[in-house]
Nucleic acid binder design. Structure first.
Lengths: 216, 216
DNA sequence: GGACACGCTATACGGGTGTACAGTCAGCAA
DNA sequence: TTGCTGACTGTACACCCGTATAGCGTGTCC
């Protein structure tokens, strides 16, 4: 986890990287200045350059670290059975809370900037979902790739909108209370078929016709 | 729509506002400079300040305009029956495509910056979804507010991840082909109950127990 | 003990940014 | 004509940013 060992115990290089990750996530790649990063890390301006060369290289280091941390948490979640039934295992999320919030904020920034790291992270998440869909619902869908991509994007929605969702619910989404409340709602959402088989067939037929025809 | 009437026919003030909206969406609030905005609008640097006072006030004007445009499109979608059955009406999205992509990019930027406009837009979307849930599934959920908030966030996921989704699918999401392909997948997703009633009951019971007990 | 490597600091420089302001020009009322 | 208003321009300024570089202190190897 990022915030252990204690901040003061980290090497200066690690402190700079962590401070950069936090400031990039909070303010964006452009607005976060090297001077602020150095100040938060408790080092001089020159040391940042000494260790990372340039702001761009510092950003690359943060990307790499965030990607590795994200994949580590995802794997822990998988081995903890978090996604076995399609819903989080009770109690898992609150444990990783601080790191996860930070990574999601950083990830949301990267998405706005269209970084390669964001795209790589998304594609790896899609691969996991695709394998899960193929195993859980084999032969069920005409276009399993598109289903996996869209499910992944939909699952990320509440995370990316973490701030707005928390405000609308009146409770911090990744706190214990928020986690329980949202998980219960997720169960209801996942258990509910939102479209009847008849409606689905009719809608699909309409799109088939649209696909053959001209631009409306 | 933003790109009609023709760009050249707009007043200088409107041209500046449109150019700012585009550059803010493309590069972010910080990276987009007043000089670039003035250049794209075809006016001098001073005129931007003359009309809007400061960069912050220009940003506020863009927020207000984007919010109004987003609500206008949403209302058109509603009146066009786009959300009547929970799925987009064939042919609607491609029509509003250019404006919608622009607004979504701008909105994604605003979300990263945690602007008041982004929060307002999200809350208004939640209100619409909440009314729809109450009408379509009355008394179905224990926590309809949370269900509405999370559904709204999930529906926004693919839009916010528009760039990554398009890359993963190999087709521009809001093009005609991408719209048809994703809509078909959405139909499958919405028609599929992802959790059996039994599993849902078991999971809910687990969370109820977690709620009563101590921190795990 | 001398030389070297490395972590680290302090200071300076060029460039780009938001802001401020004086001034030009067209349209219009008296 | 005269005077005034408002859209619009060009330039100057103070500031902050990323980058560059010279130098300091400390441990370590031969």
């Amino acid at each position: 986890m990022i915030d252990e060992p204690a901040f003061e115990d980290l090497t200066a290089r690690a402190r700079i990287r962590d401070a950069a990750l936090r400031l990039f996530a909070e303010r964006g790649m452009q607005a976060a200045t090297i001077r602020d990063i150095a100040a938060r890390a408790g080092v001089s301006l020159g040391l940042v350059r000494h260790h990372f060369g340039s702001k761009e290289e510092l950003r690359d280091a943060c990307d790499e670290y965030a990607l590795a941390q994200g994949m580590r948490i995802k794997n822990e979640a998988l081995s903890a059975g978090m996604m076995g039934s399609g819903i989080p295992k009770p109690g898992f999320l609150p444990e990783v809370h601080p790191t996860l919030v930070l990574l999601m904020q950083y990830f949301a920034r990267s998405i706005s900037d269209g970084s390669a790291a964001a795209e790589a992270m998304f594609e790896q998440f899609v691969a996991v979902t695709e394998a899960w869909v193929a195993q859980q619902f084999p032969g069920e869908f005409d276009d399993p790739k598109a289903v996996a991509v869209l499910i992944t994007a939909m699952q990320m929605g509440p995370m990316l909108l973490h701030q707005q969702v928390s405000a609308a619910l009146g409770v911090e989404l990744l706190s214990r209370a928020g986690h329980i409340r949202s998980s219960k709602a997720f169960i209801d959402i996942y258990a509910q078929p939102w479209l009847s088989k008849d409606s689905a067939e009719a809608a699909k037929a309409a799109y088939d016709q649209l696909e053959k025809g001209e631009t409306p």
